[in-house]
Design a protein around this nucleic acid. Sequence first.
DNA 1: TGGGATTTGTCCGTATGTATA
DNA 2: CTATACATACGGACAAATCCC
Lengths: 374, 374
Amino acid sequence: MSVASTCTSTRQAPKQNGIIDKLRSAIVQGKLKPGDRLPVRTELEIQHNASRVTVQKALDELIRDGFVVSKGKLGTFIADTPPCLNHYGLILPFSPTHPRWTGYYDALMLSLHELNESLQDQIHVYQGINRVTDENFPSLCDDVYARRLAGLLFAEGPIELTHTPLIREQVIPMVASMSGNHHPGLEHMVSCGFDLSSGLDLACKILRQHDVQRMAVIMISTAREPFSKFMEPIMNANGFAYNPVFCQSAPMEHREEAACIAQLLMSLPKEQRPDGLYISDDNLVPAVCRGLIKTGVKVGVELHLVAHRNYPSQANHILPMHDVIFDIRQMLSICLKRLEAKRMGDDSMKPVKIKAIRDSEIKEIKQKVDSLGF
Amino acid sequence: MSVASTCTSTRQAPKQNGIIDKLRSAIVQGKLKPGDRLPVRTELEIQHNASRVTVQKALDELIRDGFVVSKGKLGTFIADTPPCLNHYGLILPFSPTHPRWTGYYDALMLSLHELNESLQDQIHVYQGINRVTDENFPSLCDDVYARRLAGLLFAEGPIELTHTPLIREQVIPMVASMSGNHHPGLEHMVSCGFDLSSGLDLACKILRQHDVQRMAVIMISTAREPFSKFMEPIMNANGFAYNPVFCQSAPMEHREEAACIAQLLMSLPKEQRPDGLYISDDNLVPAVCRGLIKTGVKVGVELHLVAHRNYPSQANHILPMHDVIFDIRQMLSICLKRLEAKRMGDDSMKPVKIKAIRDSEIKEIKQKVDSLGF
DNA sequence: TGGGATTTGTCCGTATGTATA
DNA sequence: CTATACATACGGACAAATCCC
């Protein structure tokens, strides 16, 4: 949080960096464990054939980065929580003021708040890292290559960064949460995603319970392709006809367009227009509500609403509606578990598809975190 | 943005810190100006009666903090934009996930984005600093005492920090934006605030234009006291009767309560209930809308709405309403100007009360920034 | 195009100060 | 009180970069 930047010097300082690298690698690889005592200065001087100042400068940097702590007369020790073992990075592609910031990121930050209380502040958020030219990208790289992080968790597949050394080299474990399309070069990072079809299925079931006859869906434009695969079969399986006209979308950058679409949908003759609507992205809810209010349709009577919601976020609905919930905390936990496993050399974990739940099925985070071994 | 923390060593290092302090003070006081060349190392050694390494370590820290840059054979120079002259801190009392985060902070961040493009990224945001125990407070103090900041701008009067050394000592210029109550010990910091009475006045005028007969106001609970001073006279001056029953509030922590209040207000018999409503805080708009929608009142016909809005924020209204705008960019500019003046030793600037404007009166930031000399 | 001059930055070996078990 | 280990400091040497002639 400090203003200071960790600028690596322009020169190389081979000896100093040699010592730093050697000790740091030993910590990263587990040869030196938290609490272990380092040799005394004179011993390190001999081991590395270096002088007092050089050894000390190397240790200074390791101390600054939190790898070791010195305890006066007791000696110098590996820190209890060296960053390379305990400090994860969560990468969000945008910052909160960016037009493409979404409710999903809000939910992630909220989950983090809850998790961090049980996890001793181990997750650092990097906002606005989407492409190489983004302001914070260099500092992320710095932190990764200086091993100040135990792993990276991308809130979205870092598509624009696929061909950067950061992603190609994977010097530290990295996972990404991706629900939608597959992207070449990122497959090995995908560890978690939401099962969009389960959300649609749950929405169908809720609307069925309210005797809906004609169901419509409004989604984010980029979701249309993944949806196209399961849309018709799932709707049919739940007894709904699949009507392409009732399946509309708005782009994330212009979510307000969803208002017009909602209005248009409800402008059809009463016996033809939908009497059930699934808003498959929480970011579209305000706009859709705005549109529906203008039409004067009686929501809850003439039209039943179901909306996607990312769990820890508040459902601040203007109109009465049911929730189809994706639990972001669950996603975070799975990703962290996978990162931990990867760090231990286990890369066998299969990507998990998280299913949508109703609000009655939300579990407390405390149990969940405990059951995952945090 | 880096993970690394700027931990000052546990020991004192008198010589090294002596050199750092001397050079840094010279920069802060303007004895050394950006672009000036420092004496060569040997000269510094002689001046401070210190050895090579000591001088170099001192310079290393100044380089890390951005006070000086070294250009190889050309020598070592004062940085073009040393932090103590160019790097301001904006302090927000909460973080975006805190229940007391408000739309005002959103607007501030948006203004900053605009400003930073013309100002070369000189403003750093410290989130979640409200009281001494807050996580980021120590790093803020660090940055202030290491003179890594040219000044502080508090988004709200730092009431909980009044008796901390940070506020009492004022080692760097500090200003605060406060619209409401005065707080002892902070008077000298107040430099800017919004003229709440002008907002009410403008709201009255807009509602008058729509032939409103009975005007109601919903505000944030803490605003009731400042409002009480001008409420009646301003409403009377605009031809409205002042009815305490039509003047309600909801606390920021429970803004959703405003929905019930709005419902209750509109439950009165049609000829008695208000036909004009001023929502004097943007954070209450969603809740009030939710409440009004439930009542089925025809907004724009049976009830005219006017709502407060912080300018660069999007007006994402669900219901048709007019805006009473406070321009946050203007506030930011004034505060920065005042900080600059304070730094130059001019503490004579009187606090400015910014008046509310209509959307037609919004000016482009470009002109405004230019006219302020940035 | 190249080589000397200058300045920065790293490193060595040693010495001293300081906190503490 | 003493021994130990960390931390700062000294002066000299030298490598690396680069401007200037």
